[in-house]
Amino acid sequence: MGDEALIRLEDVHFGYGSHAVFSGLSMDIPKGKITAIMGPSGTGKTTLLELVTGQRHADRGEVRIHGRNLGTLSRKALFRLRREMGLLFQEGALFSDLSVFENVAFPLREHTRLSNILIHHLVLMKLEAVGLRGAALLNPSELSGGMARRVALARSIVLDPVMMFYDEPLVGLDPIAMGVILRLIVHLNKTLGMTSVIVTHDVKEVLKIADGSYIISEGRVVAQGSPSGLAQSRDPWVRQFLEGAPDGPVPFNYPARDFASDLFASGALP
């Protein structure tokens, strides 16, 4: 990926207490492209997004955006940088006390001094983009999971961010909603020139739209490259992950002692 990197992680170490999540993670996320970050459950994909949005800071190593190290930014500077970011939460995280319209209007009301008419127009435009203009007056509790995620998407793009992060955008969606979200991601990326980062384990779907991808496991990048490059990889680990084989370099079973001795040992279990 020879393009200019907007986001750069250099030798990032991070852990919760004694449990290490990342040990020496490095990656470049190029400007204006869709980058997929994939890995099995529990590899810290969500934590990665928390590091990139400055919700958590790396224990060691650097996370740089526009060349600026997030770890050394003041809270004020970090908040200014976050206005260029959009994050689509897996849960949607819509404000339950506000209507769909007010949810999407929220960043505008907080960060701009636009007139009500302008806010109205902008919100309806964004809702139209996700196909939910008709749902503007509903409450979040009246939405299905897929709809809530599309409203959350409209809310996260309402300030026209430079970079957009998607946390598991396809989890729990039916195939149609999945297609809708994928098309939206591509559409937003192309029309607004956003840098998009998709964190996911829906390998097949996301590789169709990604320009580049990283596979992370056990705290570091195990493979990277274009989707076609990954598809031709001979690495057994990558093959297992892409094909979803139950056993291989990544064992299906949680480490345990021998099955037979576990079954027949007397008094071993409570």
């Binding site: 339950s96 929220f106 960060h111």
Partner: peptide, 21 residues
């Protein structure tokens, strides 16, 4: 319970990421 629910459904995190304190 209102704030606890906002925490549990990540509304507080969402606000932080939207650069709203």
């Amino acid at each position: 319970s209102e704030l606890g629910l906002m925490r549990a459904t990540r509304q507080i995190d969402a606000m932080e990421v939207m650069a709203v304190d």
